[in-house]
Amino acid sequence: MSQSVETLDEIVERYPGQPEYLIFMLQDIQSTYGYISEDSMKVVCDYSGVPLTQGYSVATFYQSFRLDPRGEHEVRVCLGTACHLKGGQRIVEEVERRLNVAAGGTTEDLRYTLSTVNCVGACALAPVVVVDEEYLSNMTAKKLEKHLKTLDYDLENETKEHGHV
């Protein structure tokens, strides 16, 4: 929220305040914050001079925008044709089971966001999973879980008696 004052303004001010730059601004906000908050949506719409509804319909129309906070790690499973033929869907189902979250959702502890993408254009490596920015080729659910474990934190030392951090 508020330590983003500068960046949010800076982001929108990269562009002229015209409706055609709406998507640019939302993309930059998305990549900076991981999602588009209500506040930032208002700022962008005001700045580019469009009604809030337009900002909201744009953000819900395009797949890359999120209106909820993302997890710390983003797991994207490719479901391009090649990956589909090589079992991409199975990986999705398996990861859904293991992380206990439906594709497109974020785990309750805000650690992982699982999503599917239509094709990352790396068909030769099918099935492909992209974790954060890293392309993982010839994936299986098992390999993926192993990879996710390396990203994980050791939780137990940090959780205190009543609170959580």
Binding site: Q18, P19, E20, Y21, L22, I23, F24, L26, Q27, S48, V50, Q54, S57, V58, F61, Y62, Q63, S64, F65, N118
Partner: peptide, 26 residues
């Protein structure tokens, strides 16, 4: 350069135009 924002339908010409104009790519 306009970066697409994740919509297959924006490959369709009129949808692509509306997307460049900053609207949902209908």
């Amino acid at each position: 350069i306009n970066r697409g924002a994740g919509a297959f339908v924006c490959g369709e010409s009129t949808a692509l135009f509306t997307s460049i104009e900053g609207k949902p790519g209908n």
